Amino acid sequence: MNTDRVYSSDVAFSPAVKNIQTRKGSRRSYARIEEQGAWQTRVTPDLAEFIGAQTSVFLATANSQGQPYIQHRGGPPGFLKVLDDRTIGFADFAGNRQYITQGNLAENPKAQLFLIDYAHRRRIKIWGEARVVEDDAELIAKLMPQGYRARPEQAILFTVSAWDSNCPQHIPQRFEATDVAAALQERDERIEVLEAENARLREAERTGGTKSP
Rank of each mutant, 00 (worst) to 15 (best):
A204F: 15
N108F: 13
A177D: 10
P76V: 14
C167V: 01
N2L: 04
V133P: 04
L83W: 07
A199E: 15
T207K: 10
E186L: 13
I33G: 03
P45A: 01
A181C: 01
P172G: 03
Q112F: 09
D117H: 05
V132C: 08
F90N: 00
F175V: 10
A183R: 13
Q98W: 12
R27G: 11
T101C: 15
A31Y: 10
A94S: 15
Q112S: 13
N198K: 11
D188Q: 09
R122F: 00
R149H: 07
V11K: 10
Q65F: 13
L105N: 04
Q21D: 12
Q71H: 06
A196N: 06
V193I: 14
E189G: 05
Y99T: 10
V180Y: 05
K142H: 06
Y30T: 12
A155H: 02
Q154W: 08
G78T: 05
D10T: 13
D4R: 09
A12G: 00
E129F: 07
I33M: 07
S26N: 08
V6C: 10
Q67E: 14
I124P: 00
P15H: 07
R174G: 06
G74H: 05
V82M: 03
G78S: 14
S9Q: 14
I191L: 12
K81Y: 06
I156Y: 08
D92M: 06
S165M: 00
R121D: 01
A183F: 13
S9M: 15
I140Q: 03
N108P: 14
Y99S: 12
K110Y: 14
G103K: 08
A60G: 02
F175T: 07
W163P: 01
L115P: 03
Q40G: 00
A111P: 06
G75H: 01
E35N: 13
N104S: 12
D46S: 02
A91F: 05
I140S: 04
D135W: 03
H72D: 04
F175M: 08
L47Y: 00
Q54R: 03
T22M: 11
E203I: 09
F114I: 00
F58H: 02
F90S: 01
L59K: 00
G208E: 06
P172W: 02
R122M: 01
T207R: 11
E34W: 09
A130Y: 15
S161R: 06
L139C: 01
I70F: 06
Y99D: 09
A62W: 05
E192G: 10
I33Q: 06
T210E: 03
G66D: 12
S29A: 13
R187D: 14
T41L: 02
R23W: 07
A183N: 12
E138V: 14
V193K: 15
D179F: 04
V132R: 06
D179L: 07
I156L: 11
Y148P: 03
Q173K: 00
A130D: 10
G78D: 10
P109D: 08
L157E: 03
Q98H: 11
E153I: 08
S212A: 14
A12D: 00
